[in-house]
């Protein structure tokens, strides 16, 4: 059905083809590989240069800058050792932001994966499954700024949501959803709403690769739906689940636009609702009078990379299982 599903088989086929080619090298095929090796670097170099100069290089430079006190170009860099990191540790505003990022990672993560498991399990056998899946996924590719603006009116104290709640006699539930101390909870719900569709899609793609006879066999053995999911779907799509978890770690920590959009009308989101990317933006280039604390901001970037590395290693370790081949 999908490229990636086909690719599994095709990749092995390509591999066997490649090894058979190696075992019987003809003169012409030798010419092919000679031709290719002449072009190897010219083909790779442009992408590699751009990637090195404008992505990987800057990442290394950021690591260096994180040990400096620096207000950007025109200012003299001053080496301060680990002082920026010590400052992060003692900065309550950063700790709040860090805690919020972790809340997104953990709370949204758990809710999203529980929902995604549940939905992908029932969606398999629903009518209009393709259409439903597409609708759930849609918010994920819409501009977070546009969604933020839309939700801004929907959740306005006198907006449709509260009006609706009052209309059906639930006025007690009508809340100022965007007030500073409730904003972050609203954002958490918003992230779940936007993101779940993507993970439903990933889990469905994983489950789709499982051959149907496993389900038939388990049905003959008298397994109910839950047992089928537990004994067939879960173990056989474990790889995909593990990779989805890694993707969530990477994607959740860098959420910026979605939070920013909720408060795009003011200079900066209230402290209670900031995440690390937002706080970094506030301390460097953001706002009406940017603070340009480049060394301090870079230290936050380094902390994020370290966090990604640690969490990804952790997730992989925890989720490592004997590979189930089928």
């Amino acid at each position: 059905m999908t490229d990636n599903i086909a690719s599994g088989g095709a990749a092995t086929a390509a591999q066997t083809a490649r090894s058979s080619r190696r075992s019987a090298p003809s003169k012409q095929v030798g010419a092919l590989s000679r031709q290719r090796s002449k072009l190897y670097w010219p083909f790779i170099a442009p992408a590699l240069v751009v990637y090195l100069a404008l992505f990987f290089g800057p990442a290394l430079a950021g690591f260096w800058i994180s040990f400096q006190s620096w207000r950007g170009s025109g200012d003299q860099m001053q080496f301060v050792g680990t002082r920026n990191y010590v400052r992060l540790w003692n900065d309550t505003a950063f700790m709040t932001a860090f805690g919020n990022s972790m809340k997104i990672l953990v709370i949204c993560g758990v809710v999203i994966f529980v929902l995604a498991f549940l939905i992908s399990a029932v969606l398999r056998e629903m009518r209009f499954r393709k259409g439903l899946q597409a609708l759930l996924f849609l918010p994920y590719i819409i501009s977070p700024i546009a969604i933020g603006v839309g939700l801004g009116l929907l959740l306005d104290p006198n907006g449709l949501f509260n009006t609706g709640l009052r209309g059906i006699g639930l006025s007690s539930l009508a809340k100022p959803w965007l007030s500073p101390d409730r904003l972050f909870a609203t954002i958490l719900i918003g992230i779940v709403w936007v993101t779940t569709g993507f993970y439903v899609m990933l889990l469905m793609a994983g489950a789709d690769r499982i051959p149907g006879y496993f389900y038939e066999d388990s049905q003959l053995a008298g397994a109910n739906k839950f047992q089928q999911w537990w004994y067939v779907t879960l173990p056989l799509s474990w790889d995909v689940i593990a990779i989805s978890a890694v993707l969530w770690v990477i994607n959740s920590l860098k959420i910026f636009e979605f939070v920013y959009a909720f408060t795009g009308t003011t200079d900066a989101p209230p402290e209670q609702a900031r995440t690390v990317p937002i706080y970094q933006f506030v301390m460097t280039m953001g706002g009406r009078n940017p603070a340009y604390q480049m060394g301090y901001g870079s230290a936050m970037g380094v902390v994020m990379v370290a966090l990604v590395v640690v969490l990804v290693v952790l997730v992989r370790r925890v989720m490592r299982r004997e590979a189930v081949t089928y």
């Binding site: 990477i250 860098k254 990317p277 970094q280 870079s298 936050m300 990379v305």
Partner: peptide, 13 residues
Amino acid sequence: GIPLQAVIIPIFV
């Protein structure tokens, strides 16, 4: 896997 946040400051400068 590298978040944009690790790159933006050098890129800005």
